[in-house]
Amino acid sequence: MKWHLLLVDDDEVSIKISSFMIEETHFHPAPISFENGLRASEYLREVYKKEEKYVIFLDINMPVMNGWEFLDEIKNFTEPANVKILIVSSSVHEDDKTRAGASEFVIQYLSKPVSPDTLEELKHSASLGFLFNE
Results as ranks from 00 to 15, higher is better:
1 M>Q: 11
2 K>P: 09
3 W>P: 05
4 H>L: 03
4 H>I: 03
5 L>R: 10
5 L>Q: 10
7 L>H: 04
11 D>V: 06
13 V>F: 13
13 V>R: 14
13 V>G: 08
14 S>C: 15
15 I>K: 14
18 S>L: 15
20 F>Y: 10
20 F>Q: 13
27 F>P: 05
30 A>S: 11
31 P>Y: 09
34 F>N: 11
35 E>R: 14
35 E>G: 08
36 N>L: 05
37 G>E: 12
38 L>P: 00
40 A>D: 09
45 R>F: 11
48 Y>W: 06
50 K>W: 03
51 E>F: 06
54 Y>P: 14
54 Y>K: 12
54 Y>R: 15
59 D>G: 15
59 D>N: 15
61 N>T: 13
62 M>I: 12
62 M>A: 10
62 M>W: 11
64 V>M: 11
64 V>Y: 06
66 N>H: 09
67 G>E: 08
73 E>T: 12
76 N>I: 07
77 F>P: 09
77 F>C: 07
78 T>P: 01
80 P>V: 02
84 K>Q: 06
85 I>Q: 05
85 I>E: 04
87 I>S: 07
88 V>N: 15
90 S>D: 02
92 V>H: 06
92 V>N: 10
93 H>Y: 10
95 D>E: 11
96 D>M: 05
99 R>Y: 05
102 A>V: 01
103 S>R: 14
103 S>E: 05
104 E>W: 01
107 I>A: 00
108 Q>N: 12
109 Y>M: 01
109 Y>H: 01
111 S>P: 02
115 S>I: 03
117 D>K: 03
118 T>P: 00
119 L>P: 03
120 E>T: 03
120 E>P: 00
122 L>I: 15
122 L>G: 04
124 H>K: 11
127 S>I: 10
127 S>M: 13
128 L>E: 04
129 G>W: 00
130 F>K: 03
130 F>V: 00
132 F>M: 06
134 E>L: 05
